[in-house]
Amino acid sequence: NRRVIAMPSVRKYAREKGVDIRLVQGTGKNGRVLKEDIDAWLAG
């Protein structure tokens, strides 16, 4: 149960899109989840 590193704005964006942020692979520094990662996850 790893802790997800993401800015609050990215967490909010994921919530609005209905994405469980824990399932998204972060590509930022130290595995940080970026807004682009959410978009990529939604695109498949």
Rank of each mutant, 00 (worst) to 15 (best):
Asn1Gly: 12
Asn1Met: 04
Asn1Arg: 04
Asn1His: 13
Arg2Tyr: 04
Arg2Ile: 15
Arg2Ala: 07
Arg3Ala: 13
Arg3Phe: 07
Arg3Cys: 07
Arg3Asp: 15
Val4Leu: 05
Val4Asn: 04
Val4Pro: 15
Val4Ala: 04
Ile5Thr: 08
Met7Ala: 15
Met7Ser: 15
Pro8Glu: 06
Pro8Ala: 14
Pro8Asn: 08
Pro8Met: 07
Pro8Ile: 06
Ser9Ile: 13
Ser9Trp: 12
Ser9Lys: 15
Ser9Asp: 09
Val10Ile: 06
Arg11Ser: 03
Lys12Met: 06
Lys12Trp: 07
Lys12Arg: 12
Lys12Thr: 06
Lys12Ile: 08
Tyr13Met: 04
Tyr13Val: 03
Tyr13Gly: 01
Tyr13His: 08
Tyr13Thr: 02
Ala14Glu: 00
Ala14Gln: 00
Ala14Asn: 00
Arg15Glu: 06
Arg15Ala: 09
Arg15Thr: 10
Glu16Ser: 13
Glu16His: 11
Lys17His: 14
Lys17Tyr: 08
Lys17Met: 14
Lys17Ala: 10
Gly18Pro: 01
Gly18His: 12
Gly18Glu: 10
Asp20Pro: 09
Ile21Thr: 03
Arg22His: 11
Arg22Phe: 12
Arg22Gln: 13
Leu23Ile: 12
Leu23His: 10
Leu23Thr: 12
Leu23Met: 12
Val24Leu: 09
Val24Asn: 00
Gln25Gly: 12
Gln25Trp: 15
Gly26Ile: 02
Thr27Val: 03
Thr27Asp: 02
Thr27Arg: 10
Thr27Ile: 03
Thr27Phe: 04
Gly28Lys: 03
Gly28Asn: 03
Gly28Ser: 05
Gly28Val: 03
Gly28Gln: 03
Lys29Asp: 09
Lys29Leu: 10
Asn30Ser: 14
Asn30Arg: 14
Asn30Leu: 14
Asn30Ala: 12
Gly31Phe: 10
Gly31Thr: 05
Gly31His: 11
Gly31Gln: 10
Arg32Val: 05
Val33Ser: 01
Val33Asn: 00
Leu34Phe: 13
Leu34Met: 12
Leu34Thr: 10
Leu34Trp: 06
Lys35Ser: 08
Glu36Arg: 15
Glu36Trp: 13
Glu36Met: 14
Glu36Ala: 15
Asp37Thr: 01
Asp37Pro: 00
Asp37Glu: 01
Asp37Cys: 01
Ile38Gly: 00
Ile38Thr: 01
Asp39Arg: 08
Ala40Thr: 14
Ala40Gln: 13
Ala40Gly: 12
Trp41Lys: 07
Trp41Ala: 08
Trp41Glu: 05
Leu42Ile: 14
Ala43Gly: 11
Ala43Met: 13
Gly44Phe: 12
